[in-house]
């Protein structure tokens, strides 16, 4: 097995994890929370679409925008490529590995067969770093797995060229250029302003704070669209998965963002940001209470109207908190 000298480490999230590891490998000393915050990663969106088997929500910005926003804010240049031909996609990846370039690829998570079966779902926006190969397999550094893993090349091809919603089309990237001087202070302020805009002012009724309120309103209707009580229990318990287990660092990325604000406060030398970081940590704790609550009522099949109303009120309370938080944060960095 040819193996590139690459430090594998777990991360809270796959995209911030791959980008951070690749930047570290290229010589930039940057943390995962800083990558997340600089790319204005915190978000909320509630979606009802036939792309998903059931209504769902997201708690981070659009897949791919971690990399593109880091590029804009820090001046880092990434080599990126999508492919029409799967053969060409494979050849290009192999050439990069032979040149000792660790390379991130976008894949359908379902095919990452080193993960436990119960975790594997079809989602086309998982990112892993490829850090080695032999004739039949790739060596993978996956932020969600404690150690480096092998994956058959044929399986990786299926994962990179799975069709469907947000199909990867063999997408790969790696950092080509990192500026010698980076103005982190300026980048932090810009990123925070942008994030406050995303949460407060995007004129779309299902994103940001408006998205949370829509989620709070709609969750009480879920019994009408679930197949049966077990299905409803499954979907309610997925709230916990989406907030905690699907690569968020806990509490739907709120802990990760709190950590970014704490690190940002040191760089910008602003104690106000430190206070905001504490507030975000507390907001995270309250989201985590929703996770526990959802898991408990789901397990107990305690899913009557009163209980779902309680859940709805908890979500609305988070919307109130975050509305105030992002307004205060926005004022602080103006």
């Amino acid at each position: 097995m040819k193996e590139i000298d690459f430090k594998h480490k777990m991360a809270a999230h796959c995209e911030t994890g791959t980008v951070t590891s690749l930047l570290n490998h290229k010589g930039l000393d940057i943390t995962e929370p800083m990558v997340f915050g600089l790319s204005s990663g915190i978000f909320f969106g509630y979606f009802e679409s036939s792309n998903f088997p059931f209504p769902t929500f997201i708690v981070r910005n659009k897949p791919g925008s971690i990399r593109t926003n880091i590029s804009k804010r820090l001046g880092v240049k990434f080599y990126t490529k999508k492919f029409r031909s799967d053969k060409e996609g494979e050849v290009t990846l192999n050439e990069l590995i032979l040149k000792d370039i660790p390379t991130a690829v976008q894949v359908d998570f379902y095919y990452m067969d080193y993960m436990p079966d119960y975790q594997r779902v079809h989602i086309n926006v998982h990112f892993v770093n490829i850090i080695g190969m032999n004739d039949s397999s790739y060596l993978i550094s996956d932020s969600y797995f404690p150690k480096k893993s092998e994956l058959k090349k044929t399986t990786m091809q299926k994962a990179r060229f799975a069709g469907g919603y947000m199909e990867p089309k063999g997408f790969l990237f790696y950092p080509e250029y990192i500026p010698e001087e980076i103005d982190f202070e300026k980048a932090i302020i810009k990123a925070i302003k942008k994030n406050a805009f995303y949460m407060l002012k995007l004129p779309v009724p299902f994103v940001g704070i408006k998205g949370m309120r829509k989620f709070a309103r709609k969750v009480t209707d879920w019994p009408n669209i679930a197949r049966d009580v077990d299905h409803l229990s499954h979907e309610i318990m997925r709230i916990n998965i989406l907030l905690e287990d699907q690569g968020t660092g806990g509490a739907g990325f709120r802990y990760l963002y709190a950590t970014f604000l704490q690190q940002a406060a040191d760089i910008v030398k602003d104690d106000g940001l430190k206070d905001m970081s504490k507030r975000m940590m507390e907001i995270g704790d309250n989201w985590r209470n929703i996770s526990y609550f959802a898991a408990k009522i789901g397990k107990n099949r305690d899913l009557g109207p009163e209980r779902l109303k309680e859940l709805s009120e908890m979500i609305n309370a988070r919307a109130d908190e975050e509305y105030k938080f992002f307004n205060d944060l926005n004022k602080l960095v103006k």
Binding site: S49, S50, F52, P53, H122, A162, G163, Y165, E167
Partner: peptide
């Protein structure tokens, strides 16, 4: 069983 969205599976 594989928790596909209809539109996603149809596209694939």
């Amino acid at each position: 069983m594989q928790e596909y969205g209809e539109k996603d599976l149809a596209s694939r």
